[in-house]
């Protein structure tokens, strides 16, 4: 076991395990320490800080992007609100215009109706008057015709028509 050379050691331990050849332990331990120290140096000086910074940078980028996205979303909401407000305003304006137009039309209509009513009233008054005139003249005619007829009938019956009496009789009949 204590032999220095590999072949002797192998011969001594054969067909055993090279793992138990203690003559190589010092060598392995030395080189393992060198390797681990090298890896530790590489990791702690270069690799790990770099990866950590890359990861935190990425985290920062992601956070920033999310914040920017939130911002844009807020802006979009604002824009939507402004749009809605503009729409509502426009709608209100339209309502107002419609109401005003309606009121105008209504007043025009009212005036036109009033005028038309006045004209109609005037016309009907005229007609009324014309009708009254016609009626009066008709009454006169009837009176004349009745007097004449009554005179004719009296004379036809052989009487002597007295103009005054006949007229009085006709008048009293027509009134009654």
């Amino acid at each position: 076991m204590a032999t220095e050379t590999h072949s002797d050691a192998a011969a001594a331990s054969a067909p055993g395990m090279p793992q138990l050849d203690f003559s190589t332990f010092g060598n392995q331990i030395f080189w393992l320490l060198v390797a681990l120290a090298a890896i530790y140096f590489v990791l702690s000086r270069m690799a790990l800080p770099r990866i950590a910074s890359v990861l935190s940078e990425r985290q920062g980028t992601i956070t920033n992007d999310i914040a920017a996205a939130e911002d844009l979303k807020a802006k979009a909401l604002q824009a939507e609100a402004a749009y809605d407000k503009a729409l509502a305003d426009a709608r209100m304006e339209a309502q107002r215009i419609i109401a005003a137009a309606k009121a105008d039309i209504q007043s025009d209509l009212d005036a036109a109706i009033a005028r038309a009513d006045a004209q109609i009233a005037e016309k009907s008054a005229e007609s009324e008057k014309a009708i009254a005139g016609i009626r009066e003249s008709a009454m006169e005619n009837v009176k004349i015709v009745a007097r004449d007829t009554a005179k004719e009938i009296v004379s036809a019956l052989g009487g002597k028509p007295d103009a005054k009496t006949v007229n009085a009789a006709v008048d009293s009949r027509l009134k009654g």
Binding site: E4, T5, H6, S7, S23, T24, G26, N27, Q28, I29, F30, W31, L32, V34, A35, A38, I39, V42, L43, M46, A47, L48, R50, I51, V54
Partner: peptide, 30 residues
Amino acid sequence: DAVNWYTPTNATLWMALAVLAVFALLVLGT
């Protein structure tokens, strides 16, 4: 034949390759 504590051996070689691989992955790779 002699394997002294400082002799570069096949174990040394493959440990060194492991170190290089770590370096390549974690340092060169990033």
